[in-house]
């Protein structure tokens, strides 16, 4: 990744941590493309690269307080993606050597998603009914916090809590299973 892209990514993540949702969505979109390129190059069957993308985004989200706000973003992103990739192979009972070299990563090209059934969809089924409907409304139906609150007759705070707990529970399942 070149210096400009690196700086933009850091700026977006800093803005996100300061509470800018739009910057956060932009950051996640760009990061997803980078991780997708990384995962597709490392995986030859056995694991769906898009599952790695989603597990990595979720881990980045839950662990974004571990990023040092004055540090470059990409070493942090790649370290998490590599960890999730190795973990995915380990869980599926396969041993792989994921090369630690940085050279291959610098040529990673952002790539677009292809559609298929995702592990995260199956994990969603393990949530409590309330959490599941809130997470689904916001993610799949693309509703805002306010719209979701109106739809279910909940307060916005309750929606935020249900969303956060739901996401944390999904992230935990990825870590454990």
């Amino acid at each position: 990744m070149n210096g400009d892209a690196e700086n933009e990514l850091a700026t977006l993540l800093r803005a996100a941590i300061a509470g800018d949702e739009r910057a956060y969505a932009e950051f996640l979109g760009r990061t997803a493309a980078i991780v997708r390129g990384f995962a597709r190059r490392k995986i030859q069957g056995g694991v769906d690269p898009e599952d790695i993308v989603q597990e990595t985004l979720l881990a980045l989200h839950m662990k974004r307080h571990t990023w040092k706000t004055d540090a470059p973003v990409s070493p942090w992103v790649y370290a998490i993606a590599r960890f999730k990739l190795i973990d995915a192979f380990r869980k599926r009972g396969r041993h792989v050597e994921v090369e630690i070299g940085e050279i291959a990563e610098t040529v990673a090209q952002p790539e677009a998603e292809t559609v298929s059934d995702r592990e995260i969809g199956r994990v969603l089924d393990g949530l409590t009914a309330g959490q599941r409907s809130v997470v689904a409304a916001i993610s799949i139906e693309g509703r805002s916090i306010g719209e979701t609150a109106a739809k279910f007759g909940m307060t916005e705070t309750a929606v935020r809590v249900a969303l956060h707990r739901g996401l944390r529970s999904i992230a935990k399942k990825f870590g454990r299973s």
Binding site: A16, I17, G19, D20, E21, Y24, A25, L28, G29, A32, E50, V53, Q54, L57, L58, H61, R64, H65, T66, K68, E113, V115, R118, I120, G121, L124, V135, I138, S139, I140, G142, S144, I145, R160, L163, H164, L167
Partner: peptide
């Protein structure tokens, strides 16, 4: 769930932040 759907959910959860690791 597609990756963009997941991003919608993560984005909406942006305000919930844990304590910075340094502290």
């Amino acid at each position: 769930m597609q990756t963009n759907d997941l991003i919608n959910a993560l984005r909406a959860d942006a305000a919930k932040q844990a304590m910075p690791l340094g502290y």
